[in-house]
Amino acid sequence: MSNKPKVSGFMNYLRKERIPTIFCAGCGNGTVINTFFNAMEMAELSLDNISMVSGIGCSSRIPGYIKCDSLHTTHGRPIAFATGVKLGNPDMDVVVFTGDGDAAAIGGNHLIHAARRNLDLTVICVNNSIYGMTGGQISPTSPKGSFASTTPYGALEAPFDLAKLVSGAGATYVSRWTTVHPLPLSNAIKKGLQNKGFSFIEVISQCPTYFGRKNRMRSAVEMMKYMKTHSVVKKKAKKMSEEELEGKIILGDFVNRNWPEFSEMLCEQVNEKSEKGLIDAIKSAYKTDL
């Protein structure tokens, strides 16, 4: 395999004193960490220039294990904080780790607005269809009929299709993969990191502890096998009927387009209006002579 990941070096990217992680055995978060490092290397980016922002939930704990500047914020709001980080220093590569509850329920508004602005952020949403940190409650992406501690008789609500939602809101790169597809997922994250604009990578992941246990899939392996057999790449999905696609996870790039990016336009405007330009504002909190 030509693009074989050099996983053994990934340990150097971690805050070693903090591992093992708090994640349950078989949780998909660790696989997402590996694919991120693989993508970062492929995109030739460095943790020296990456700021990670996350909200609240299991996947939002990811940046805490990575040796980079990391902001572990409030529930649902990481994209708002990330907006400030990016505009405060547009030279930084800003990555957001979030989950389905964080990004799609409490933080849904920030998600669609950052996508609308096409702000240069790479948002990696680990979607495990459940609230893991609080003990297995239903989420806005849980499939209809699925069980959770707050839907003991089955969920009645229709789930969000996050990739479609964010595409519609104006993101310029949107892709969906699962934890069973680490190499295409790495490639999607790489494309997201390289895209100058709002990138959204939805990772369908397994929560064996809560989603699995409540929905008759007892192990991470069983859940991953389910994801593998129930996913269809976009190209193939196009040829399938709605009935055939029922219950299937559609994978691939949903959007990949070149639209003007917000921070770049804002910088241009500031440079036009001011003598000093935005570059003078960078790290200006440390200056007394302005």
């Binding site: 700021s51 922002v53 500047d69 902001l71 914020t73 409030t74 709001r77 994209i79 708002a80 904080f81 990330a82 907006t83 400030g84 980080v85 990016k86 505009l87 405060g88 220093n89 930084m92 508004n109 920030h110 607005h113 504002a281 960078i282 790290k283 200006s284 909190a285 440390y286």
Partner: peptide
Amino acid sequence: MEDEISALGAVIGAAWAGVKG
């Protein structure tokens, strides 16, 4: 921003990027 919650969030983010907000 889209609301006051995100407004203050963005100010905090900018502060950590090194800018007074």
